[in-house]
């Protein structure tokens, strides 16, 4: 996203006809966050600064808006995102063990990213396939019925990615 040359009216589209300038610039924020994050996989401070300056919105407000949403990240994320389900069914079927094994292997805590940016470890409430518990996702793929063998497969696929 070329932050210096954002065409506010073009980005905001038809709805811009009924908005004033302040509403337009504030309204553009989330759209811009999503675009920035899809390009850089997180929201770097410099990019947000450039965005705030371009839209004439204070940094405190930029961060206030972005931090409201769980989908936005302020630190770089790993190439592979592993999310371990800790929902009720997975919890009962040993999600805790899955999580601690991954933590140990990659030397990260929950929510953290490895130093080489290869992997981010997160937890998730429920992915909707409790019959396969314990479950984890690797990027968009769901891995179910995780046992020792499958954990090794997960570790392997992260390392090979």
């Amino acid at each position: 996203m070329d932050l210096k040359n954002i065409d506010i009216n073009k980005e905001i589209g038809a709805v811009g006809d009924v908005l004033n300038q302040e509403q337009k610039t504030k309204g553009l924020l989330i759209h811009a966050f999503q675009k920035l994050q899809s390009e850089m996989n997180y929201l770097p401070e410099e990019a947000l600064k450039a965005l705030g300056e371009k839209l004439n919105i204070p940094m405190s407000f930029v961060y206030s808006t972005a931090s409201f949403y769980k989908q936005f990240y302020f630190n770089p994320r790993g190439k592979t995102i592993v999310k371990v389900c800790t929902g009720t069914a997975c919890h009962v079927r040993g999600a805790g063990e899955v999580l601690s094994e991954l933590k140990e292997e990659f030397g990260v805590e929950e929510g953290e990213t490895t130093e080489d940016l290869s992997m981010t470890l997160e937890t998730v409430g429920c992915v909707g396939c409790c019959g396969l518990a314990p479950v984890a996702t690797i990027n968009e793929d769901v891995i179910g019925e995780i046992d020792d063998e499958r954990i090794n497969e997960i570790i392997q696929s992260v390392k090979e990615a």
Partner: peptide, 19 residues
């Protein structure tokens, strides 16, 4: 002056500065 703002949301939200 625009220094303080609400960050985060819900019960864990906090009034603080950027980052």
């Amino acid at each position: 002056t625009n220094i303080l703002e609400f960050m985060g949301r819900g019960v864990g939200s906090k009034v603080t500065t950027e980052r």
